[in-house]
Design a binder for these strands. Structure first.
Length: 610
RNA sequence: CGGGGUGUGGCGUAGUUGGUAACGCACGUGCUUUGGGAGCACGAGAUCGUGGGUUCGAGUCCCACCACCCCGACCA
């Protein structure tokens, strides 16, 4: 994957810049007119499919495969066919322009890293099998890069000496490999993908705030230009540290993240970190504990039904094993769910959490289905603050078939932590304005992250300040996955007939279709001339010169989704020119050939017709 | 990693109680056709995911494995 070759072939469709000379990759003489076979559908390396591929569910997946933009090679591994590659380049170019605009410098860093680099930051040991490790021929440990914080930190250590060299931002487009446990959704969650990752390098937190703000604003411009309605939500910073993060999310039912949103005031957070309002429990006298037989009541629902109490009068226990070997009991009220992200952050669980097994639970004196921290051994007990101040709850007795009434903290058991560890629910009070929040699924199309000094401290990446002292460089990192953005654009811009590319990212500005071209020489003649005019002007349009029936060609044009469809036929010529169709609206008009030629020569005037 | 599902020409599928693979689309050739996935004729293309087993005989039954999809776990 070579960013340079991608950059060299920046697209010029629909722009007003002059046609540059295009160099052929295999060494054609400079200045020689480029042959672009992919402009002719008869030569384009692609095929359309009449049927949906059986393994595709999301519209973007179905359409991108059916229209010949991408092909799957393995689970979460895709080839970009020429059309898909062009779209990706268009997306890349939008991002590049906005990165350049905020003064970020494009570079390129390697995909394969010596493992020592990742050992030095500690991530080699913290990250699980998602990080691909292998040995080279000399038995050296190597990794496939998931991101490039380490490399940037190393470069900073080598290059930056003085505060005068800061602030500084760099970015690159590079292939990442993450051995995800499960790829899904076509291009939405893949294992190999190209990502724009940018890194800001500042003298201090105030500088980081400025860089972060610049990236934030650039992201808003990028997603607007890409035709994506992305909203920024507050996000988890993880246990890696970091002082703030936002994820840019597109609402989508197939999304993997849950967002907590408030229509009234615009509040938006990832459910992982959202803290919403909770009703204060009514005060009541603390009652003595009392065993109660509850045969078969192993779930909160069953328990509440059996005892005929609301779920809010019960305590729910969830058991986890932390990656660092600690056993964790989390207690929330029965009407809430445990939020694992908050739990991880509360106990600073290295390596995350996984559900505990029944054996692990009983080994610590508890009983799955009838569990509570009462009598627990060797366990970290974390109680949700609301559960902690809710009086007289029904909790497990750690005995099969029995619960305990009137359990109260701290009388009946001692928590190691009392913290807010529940997930926000639909309709809960907005933390900002108190209105009801709503929950929506979202796809993360970009993220921005205040890294702080973790990496620069680990690598000794310091600069000499005005005070003559060494200070760690304050870093930020900012990612956008290209393929996922392409998929999200299709998710947002398609209809029952196919893709409807926004002008900014369409692989070609226009799709020229001939009807009866083989039979009527005038049709082919006019179309060939239009195509040539466009090519001479450096404006690449797609030319369907295939000898196919009108139905096939028009259907394919709609499936492929170029913003403008230009139809030349004996009928259109008789009507005075070409038929111009706006793909998004279906609006049609007849345009004289000379006028079309002018548009193709001088740039497509997207507002004038239709 | 747990649960569910699917593997049969390029794509989508059929295949009965086990008897030597069928259909649509796509593809090639010829003729006809040409504004909404054309028609006719001829043709090419499949060791039925892999390995083993049962059987006179396996796409079909049994076992193991692999791949892919979906749900969950997971996702600095």
């Amino acid at each position: 994957m070579c960013a340079r070759s991608r950059a060299r072939r920046r697209l010029r469709v629909g722009t007003a810049e002059p046609a540059p000379t295009i160099l052929l990759a295999h060494g054609a003489a400079p200045g020689c007119a480029a042959i672009l076979p992919e402009m002719r559908l008869s030569q384009l390396f692609f095929t359309t499919l009449r049927d949906d591929p059986s393994d595709a569910e999301m519209p973007s997946h179905r359409l991108l495969v059916r229209a010949g933009y991408v092909r799957q090679l393995g689970s979460g591994i895709y080839s970009l066919l020429p059309l898909g590659f062009r779209v990706t380049q268009r997306v890349e170019q939008v991002i590049r322009e906005e990165m350049d605009r905020i003064g970020s410098q494009e570079m390129e860093m390697p995909v394969v890293h010596p493992a020592e680099v990742w050992k030095e930051s500690g991530r080699y040991f913290k990250i699980g099998p998602e990080l691909v490790r292998f040995k080279d021929r000399a038995e050296r440990d190597m990794v496939l890069a998931m991101t490039h914080e380490e490399v940037v930190a190393l470069l900073l250590r080598d290059i930056v000496r003085s505060y005068r060299q800061l602030p500084m931002m760099v970015y690159h487009f590079q292939t990442k490999f993450r051995d995800e446990p499960r790829a899904r959704g076509g291009l939405i969650r893949v294992r190999e993908f190209v990502m724009k990752d940018a890194y800001s390098c500042d003298r201090d937190d105030a500088g980081l705030d400025r860089s972060y703000r610049l990236q934030y604003e650039a992201y808003e411009r990028i997603f607007r230009r890409l035709g994506l309605n992305a909203i920024a939500v507050g996000a988890d910073v993880g246990i890696m540290g970091g002082t703030g993060a936002h994820e840019f999310m597109v609402i989508n039912d197939f999304g993997e993240d849950t967002l907590v949103l408030c229509d009234a005031c615009g509040y938006a957070d990832n459910q992982q970190i959202a803290v919403v309002g909770k009703p204060e429990p009514a005060p009541e006298a603390i009652l003595p504990v009392e065993d109660v037989e509850t045969p078969g009541a192993t779930t909160i629902d069953a328990l509440a039904r059996y005892l005929d109490v609301p779920r809010s009068r019960t305590a729910k226990a969830a058991f986890f094993m932390a990656g660092d070997g600690r056993f964790v009991v989390a207690i929330v009220r029965g009407d809430y769910d445990v939020n694992e992200t908050k739990l991880v952050n509360t106990i600073k669980a290295r390596g995350g959490l996984r559900p505990a097994t029944v054996e692990e639970i009983t080994a610590r004196g508890m009983e799955a289905g009838y569990g509570s921290p009462i009598g627990a051994r060797d366990a970290v007990v974390v109680v949700d603050e609301l559960a902690a101040r809710s009086p007289n709850l029904v909790a497990g007795a750690n005995r099969v078939g029995w619960h305990v009434r009137n359990v109260n903290v701290p009388r009946d058991y001692a928590p190691d932590h009392v913290a807010e560890i529940t997930s926000a629910r639909e309709g809960d009070p907005c933390p900002r304005c108190g209105g009801p929040v709503k929950l929506r699924q979202g796809i993360e199309v970009g993220n921005i992250f205040k890294l702080g000094t973790d990496f620069s401290v680990a690598f000794g990446s310091t600069y000499l300040g005005e005070d003559g002292q060494a200070h760690p460089i304050v870093m930020g990192s900012y990612g956008i996955g290209l393929g996922r953005n392409v998929a999200c654009i299709v998710e947002a811009h398609h209809d029952e007939k196919g893709i409807v590319w926004p002008d900014e990212v369409a692989p070609y500005a226009a799709h020229l279709v001939t009807i009866s071209g083989a039979r009527d020489p005038r049709v082919a003649e006019v179309a060939d001339r239009l195509h040539q005019v466009a090519a001479d002007a450096g404006r690449e349009i797609l030319y369907d010169d295939r000898d196919e029936s009108p139905g096939v060609k028009l259907t394919d044009a709609e499936l492929l989704g170029m913003p403008w469809i230009v139809t030349i036929s004996p009928r259109s010529l008789a009507a005075g020119g070409a038929e111009l169709t706006r793909r998004a609206t279906g609006a049609r008009s007849t345009v004289p050939i000379e006028q079309l030629e002018g548009w193709l020569r001088d740039g497509f005037e997207v507002r004038a017709p239709a």
